[in-house]
């Protein structure tokens, strides 16, 4: 026992002092390759994935984002929708929830290919030496609601389609305006999403809207870190069911100096992470659980990521110093 403990402690120290950004970079690349090209290796993780492993990337996808089947299921004829056949919606949701619970919003910060892509676009901007944009607090407060609106529409419009209120050309409504639908197939050489569908007026509007959102996505994510995540209805859905999640972001307010280092590195500009010293479960609706805040917290134990209650990545002073000094040496 006494011999084992230092070994365990050494492992913990090694994890806590890891060069976090590099680790995350490689993790993201691996996940990106897996979910954008995994299909070529016959990997199929089902269609209930809690992140944008886009189903429109027919060739390479290693699984499908849950929002696609969800919208299809909700878009069923009402007679079917309100019958026993809709048990599959429930089981589908439970499968999705089971996936989600494992990493919580960590899916966003570590796995989501669209998120990774935005990080790469940010990296490109950084290399060009262009500063990133911030929202003012007022803008933030307004914009943060959009994802919930999108989530509501994502559920209501398919219901309307099933009920015959809207055209089938609107289905699946969110996918049609989601930049992932257009961008991710690009990576397997499929440019077919970049078209305007002239087959009906609705189709014209929806495809034009889709392409507009994608264009804004490129511009937006170039100047704003994780531009799209702010509006992502998947993120909203995550937040609504995040209570039982296994991976958690915890804060010990008594150790916090409110220095704002975590806020400074936060891609999502979440102020609570720095200013809230009362909440222990500090993950907010905008959080992508990238854990950069933990990596940039100089107060030992103030922030930590726990898995089933076991701390797996804890902020430490030595870790902070190592990481930040590394950052200093890079540009010299």
């Amino acid at each position: 026992m006494t011999a084992a403990k230092p070994a365990m402690q050494r492992l913990r120290d090694a994890v806590n002092e890891v060069d976090f950004n590099r680790f995350r970079f490689w993790f993201q690349i691996t996940a990106f390759i897996l979910f954008v090209y995994g299909g070529y290796l016959a990997i199929d993780l089902g269609s209930k994935l809690p992140f944008f492993s886009c189903g429109y990337n027919r060739e390479g996808r290693a699984g499908v984002c849950y929002l696609l089947p969800l919208q299809h299921q909700l878009g069923r004829n009402w007679a079917v929708l309100f019958s026993m056949a809709s048990l599959t919606i429930l089981t589908g949701f439970l499968t999705f929830a089971a996936w989600f619970i494992v990493l919580n919003k960590g899916w966003c910060g570590f796995v989501c290919p669209l998120g990774t892509l935005q990080d790469w676009i940010s990296a490109l901007r950084r290399r060009l030496g262009i500063r990133y944009a911030n929202y003012t607090q007022g803008q933030f407060a307004q914009l943060t609601k959009i994802k919930f609106v999108l989530l509501a529409l994502l559920i209501l419009i398919p219901l309307g389609i099933g009920g015959g209120l809207f055209s089938h050309d609107m289905s699946p409504p969110f996918c049609l305006i989601c930049p992932a639908r257009m961008v991710l197939p690009l990576f397997t050489g499929d440019l077919s999403q970049f078209t305007i569908d002239f087959s009906s007026k609705t189709a014209v509007v929806m495809t034009a809207l889709g392409i507009s959102v994608t264009a804004l996505f490129f511009v937006g994510s170039f100047v704003k870190k994780r531009f799209f995540c702010f509006f992502c209805p998947m993120s909203a859905l995550h937040y609504l069911i995040s209570k039982p999640a296994l991976l958690k972001l915890k804060k010990d307010g008594s150790k916090c100096t409110r220095c704002g280092d975590c806020y400074a590195v936060c891609d999502m500009e979440i102020k609570e992470i720095a200013d809230d010293v009362k909440t222990t479960n500090i993950m907010t609706d905008d959080c992508t659980m990238c854990l950069k805040c933990v990596a940039s917290c100089p107060e030992t134990g103030a922030l930590k990521a726990t898995f089933v209650g076991i701390p797996i990545f804890v902020s430490t002073e030595t870790g902070f110093i190592k990481r930040m000094n590394k950052g200093c040496q890079h540009g010299k």
Binding site: R131, Y132, D261, V265, A274, K292, S296, M324, G331
Partner: peptide, 23 residues
């Protein structure tokens, strides 16, 4: 201590400013 996300002047200076005020 100061944490910086992007080692660009704007971010470094802002992070420094935060360090001198917030804690």
């Amino acid at each position: 201590m100061t944490a910086v996300d992007e080692w660009l002047l704007s971010d470094m200076v802002d992070s420094l400013a935060d360090k001198y005020l917030k804690p």
